[in-house]
Amino acid sequence: MIPPFPLSSDPPPPGAPAQARPPDDHPVDDRSASVDPPDARPSDPQPDPLRGGRQAAPPPPEPDSPPPPDKKIRFKDRATLFGLNLLMWLPYERRVRLAGWVGRTIMTRSSSIRPRIRAAVLHLFPDLPEAEVARICTSVPENLARSAVELVSGQDFYAHAAQTPISGPGWDALQEARRAGRPALLLIAHFGNFGAVGAALKARGFRVGAFYNPLPDPATNRFYTQSLSLLSDPLFPSGREGVAKMLRHLRGGGMVAISNDLDRPHGVMLDFLGKPARTVLSMAEMALKYDALLVPVYGIRREDGLHFDITIDTPVPHGDPAEMTQVLNDSLGRMVTLHKEQWLWWHRRWKDGHPADAEENEG
């Protein structure tokens, strides 16, 4: 399945214990961008048996190179790519509407998504009327499916979203940062569709980089990244090399979009929608280190399911990293409260076993 939100990786805070990080998380340290690994030095030249001279030694194999895909992966890759190309034959609006139908009818009946959404919504809003809970449980998969198809629609989605009006209290500050060459960190979330924001900003001359998680199937990943590159440029694959490239981009006055609405083991306990949730401080710490503008941005889907309202929220004043991150949580919390059907409720933002859960039980 094509993930609907490519921008789901957040770099961990400096000093986070290594054993507490997921494999793709790395400390925010720009030294990794300029230090070569020990085996990067050129080897001594070796004799060329055919020419009698000396030639450079072949580069050593990369230890982290993935093995060639097996037959099952190749078949899945080709089948997925065939399905994507077939889908692209449909007119843009028809394919997005078809995705919405699949999301609200098939996805909600054939998976565990609906009960997980219901449990999460009632955890935060226990007094919500049953009819509203049912509407959210149906609408969230619909938004997910629409977003997935939009993000792989490449030029069609870009042309559709590029002229979307941009507003909000932080829009002037973001434009000023671009004029001044000041770095900027744009908080995104698994909400609405950030791709619409990326298209609208790129059409206005902004260059906003973004993290993405590469897909395991090579051909499908090429299709996916070609579409994403029309919305965000440059793209930084998750991992150490991606972090290093992102930091160089940021140091040079670039803009980067990063999400922080997932549970992370190295996060600190902050309030989110009235409940304690582990939240990384990476964005605030990078904003302080590089004197970057820190601003939440949202692509809010309209009721017609096809168009968006783009909001640039109030920039976060620099100060204590935890307090800055709490402001980010509060901004997203307001948006989720207003548009509950547009946030991915099933990714377990509040997991069992949190220290805060134990404290609540003891209380």
Rank of each mutant, 00 (worst) to 15 (best):
R179P: 00
A177D: 00
R240Q: 14
S147D: 05
R178H: 03
H249E: 14
F206S: 00
G209M: 03
S167Y: 12
E241P: 01
N193Y: 07
R204I: 09
D217R: 15
Y158E: 00
D172R: 02
G205A: 04
L186D: 11
I166P: 02
R179L: 09
A148D: 07
L235M: 09
M246E: 08
L187K: 09
M246K: 06
H160I: 03
E241F: 12
N193R: 12
R248C: 12
A189R: 02
A189D: 04
L228M: 08
G181A: 05
T225P: 02
A219I: 13
N193V: 01
L231N: 06
V152K: 03
V197G: 03
L215M: 15
I188H: 05
T225I: 08
L250Q: 06
F194Y: 07
S229R: 06
G192D: 05
A159D: 13
L235D: 04
Y158A: 04
Q226F: 04
G168R: 05
R146I: 12
E142R: 15
L174Q: 06
A145E: 10
L231V: 12
A145S: 15
Y224L: 05
L185G: 01
F191M: 04
W171Q: 07
L174N: 06
R178P: 00
N213M: 05
F236H: 09
R222F: 10
A145H: 11
L144H: 10
D172G: 08
T225E: 09
D217E: 15
Q155I: 01
A148N: 10
P234S: 02
A196E: 13
L231D: 06
F236M: 09
V140M: 13
V197I: 14
V149W: 01
F191I: 01
F211R: 07
R146Y: 11
A210Q: 03
L235E: 03
K202V: 02
G181T: 05
Y224A: 06
E176A: 13
G154K: 08
F223M: 13
A210G: 15
F211Q: 10
P218N: 13
S147A: 15
A180S: 07
V149I: 08
P234Q: 02
M246Y: 04
L247P: 07
F236L: 09
P214Q: 11
D217N: 15
R240Y: 08
R251A: 14
R146M: 14
V197Q: 09
D172F: 00
G205K: 07
G205L: 05
G239E: 00
D233K: 02
M246T: 10
Q226M: 06
L201H: 07
G181Y: 05
R146K: 15
Q163T: 12
A161C: 10
L231A: 13
R222W: 12
G154N: 10
L231Y: 10
S238K: 02
P237M: 11
A203W: 11
A148Q: 14
L230E: 05
H249A: 14
L144M: 12
A184Q: 07
R207D: 02
A184M: 12
R204K: 12
G242F: 02
R182N: 03
L215E: 15
T164N: 09
A184S: 11
